[in-house]
Amino acid sequence: MITLLNEHYLSFPDVDQAHESGILALGGDLSPERLVLAYNSGIFPWFEDGEPITWWAPNPRMVLFFDNLIISKSMRNVLNRGSFRITMNTCFREVITNCQSIKRVGQNGTWITDDMIESYCTLHEMGIAKSFEVWQDGNLVGGLYGIDLGHIFCGESMFSKVSNASKVAFIYLSQYLQSMGYKLLDCQVYNDHLSSLGAIEIPRDVFMEYLLQG
């Protein structure tokens, strides 16, 4: 069952009511309050420009447990060369804008709308949305951003302008989260790239157990 949300009423249905596709609800708004409620409820927005706001709670859920992080021999060589510099929260808007504009194989458009950029930049100003940046020769060449729940980091999107830059960002993020005692990195839905880095699918109810431990 897919619920139609009232933009004037701040609530979501339980994730168990999601359609088998993972879609839980349509409508509502992208206010910081609704976004915070969504992520704390195991829900995230994902839709293309011109479509209604679509809220997801997929089953299964793609996550990374940090002990499962895969760093290939070739990636270890990349990291050991030290050709990249990593920063955190130095240019959030630039990161999310690059994630919006970067060309991706098999995708004609982007799900990061201009309205979403403004909403997530507001969350960044609130200390909730965070970014990792990858630099080479003084240029921003990769990065990622997501929502920090304090015990789980919900990864949203990443970009790479040179080979391996997004992988470097993902690896550094994972190692940082592990060092800070986070339980897992939420990768949301399956893709081969994340699987190659060690992410796995778990049942939604198991993900919710970790989420509610916060």
Score class of each variant (00 low, 15 high):
158 M>Q: 04
196 S>H: 13
99 C>E: 03
102 I>R: 08
163 S>W: 03
24 L>V: 05
13 P>Y: 04
174 S>D: 10
139 N>Y: 06
187 C>S: 09
79 L>E: 03
84 F>N: 02
97 T>L: 08
162 V>S: 09
152 I>R: 00
191 N>F: 01
214 G>Q: 02
212 L>Y: 02
209 E>R: 06
76 R>W: 00
133 E>T: 10
82 G>S: 07
13 P>L: 07
134 V>A: 03
44 F>C: 00
130 K>R: 14
21 S>E: 12
47 F>V: 03
51 E>N: 14
180 M>E: 15
16 D>C: 10
170 F>I: 14
20 E>K: 07
197 L>D: 03
179 S>K: 08
200 I>A: 00
31 S>V: 01
166 S>F: 11
18 A>N: 01
144 L>R: 10
114 D>T: 13
72 S>M: 00
99 C>W: 06
118 E>R: 15
100 Q>K: 14
190 Y>G: 05
101 S>G: 07
103 K>M: 07
204 R>V: 00
132 F>N: 09
65 F>W: 11
66 F>S: 02
67 D>S: 14
181 G>C: 07
190 Y>T: 09
182 Y>P: 01
214 G>A: 07
52 P>S: 05
202 I>G: 00
84 F>G: 00
54 T>F: 10
173 L>V: 12
6 N>D: 15
203 P>W: 01
196 S>L: 13
35 L>A: 05
25 A>G: 04
206 V>I: 15
124 H>R: 06
148 D>N: 14
134 V>I: 12
151 H>I: 07
11 S>D: 12
1 M>I: 00
93 R>L: 08
144 L>C: 13
92 F>W: 04
3 T>S: 04
96 I>P: 06
22 G>F: 13
173 L>S: 03
122 T>A: 11
22 G>R: 10
33 E>W: 01
182 Y>L: 00
99 C>G: 05
188 Q>A: 08
51 E>Y: 12
174 S>R: 15
135 W>F: 03
190 Y>Q: 08
116 M>A: 15
189 V>H: 02
107 Q>M: 15
186 D>F: 00
119 S>C: 13
75 M>D: 06
115 D>L: 12
173 L>H: 02
104 R>M: 04
2 I>A: 03
142 G>D: 09
38 A>T: 01
145 Y>N: 09
92 F>S: 10
70 I>E: 13
139 N>D: 10
100 Q>Y: 01
83 S>V: 14
74 S>T: 09
164 N>Q: 13
214 G>W: 04
50 G>A: 12
91 C>Q: 10
186 D>T: 00
46 W>Y: 12
158 M>Y: 11
19 H>W: 10
49 D>F: 14
22 G>L: 09
201 E>A: 15
174 S>M: 13
39 Y>S: 01
151 H>F: 14
98 N>K: 12
199 A>E: 00
67 D>K: 15
28 G>P: 01
26 L>K: 08
32 P>Q: 05
148 D>R: 08
161 K>V: 04
134 V>K: 12
67 D>R: 14
132 F>K: 09
